[in-house]
């Protein structure tokens, strides 16, 4: 195995030897399934579209946000905990080439994010399939495949954004609070109310363009993917510069 592959293997080992990954998978799985089931229960009531309609299935499958937010937190933990628990010291003593360490960590978290997004969306989709089958419905609307792929891409991008935030702040708690504050309170509640036409251009807004069914208020999937990847790349460039240059105190 060459040095880069050894590092990839070590980064995966780091991910799978703390509680963060199993806990994240468990929480996201429960949230995704619960979200589908709640939407299934309220379908057809109080003005909600009826089960079997494309609108109802899309509503049940709006679970990409679960994978995205959980991956954001996991990304922050993957990078931030190196500083919080000072494991960055043995990491850099073993591999003093910081750029390589950073790139590999980003790649591993992105890869994990893609698989994570696939698993969580797959779980939700399986639940939707079961709900629909119970109603004798055996077909899915056209955009489901695109939403699946969008969730995979958005989860990978948010994992990378998390790594960038964790490396930039070197403070897991602060970064998680800031990230949740941004995604939930700033983008989703404040901006969505005050200036909804701007929101689609921001990270969470762009991820909705990927994970949710087509709508006039969100970007088209390709544009959304480009915007989100652009944010991830910009933040990674900023984080890599500080990570490579800053002293480890």
């Amino acid at each position: 195995m060459n040095a880069t592959m050894r590092l990839v293997s070590a980064e995966f080992r780091k991910l799978f030897t703390t509680f963060a990954v199993p806990l994240s998978v468990a929480i996201a799985s429960v949230l995704a399934v619960a979200s589908v089931l709640i939407d299934a229960v309220v379908a057809g009531r109080a003005g909600q579209p009826a089960i079997g309609s494309a609108a109802s299935t899309y509503q049940m499958l709006k679970i990409g946000a679960v994978a995205v937010v959980v991956m954001l937190i996991l990304g922050i933990l993957a990078a931030g905990s190196e500083f919080r628990h000072r494991t960055i010291v043995p990491t850099l003593l073993a591999t003093p080439r910081r750029a390589r360490v950073f790139v590999v960590k980003v790649a591993v978290v992105a890869l994990f994010g893609a698989v994570f997004g696939a698993v969580i969306f797959g779980l939700g989709l399986g639940t939707v399939d079961g709900v629909l089958a119970a109603h004798g419905i055996h077909h899915l609307p056209a955009a489901v495949g695109r939403m699946y792929l969008g969730t995979v891409i958005a989860s990978a991008c948010f994992g990378m954004i998390g790594v960038a935030l964790g490396a930039l702040t070197r403070n897991t708690v602060g970064a998680i609070v800031a990230a949740i504050g941004w995604t939930l309170f700033f983008e989703e509640i404040t901006l969505n109310t005050v200036a909804p036409h701007l929101e689609k251009w921001l990270p969470v807004g762009a991820s909705i363009g990927l994970t949710n069914p087509p709508a006039p208020s969100v970007l088209a999937p390709t544009a959304a993917g480009v915007v989100l990847a652009g944010y991830a790349l910009a933040m990674l460039v900023a984080a890599s510069r500080t990570t490579i240059r800053r002293d480890i105190g």
Partner: peptide
Amino acid sequence: PVRQVGAVLDSSTFHPSRSAAQHLKVIATA
């Protein structure tokens, strides 16, 4: 570097939820 220099800089550079063996295996893998 690890085969040339062994270093201890401070005594708390571990993730608390990893075991000693897991911690060392991460370094060994890298």
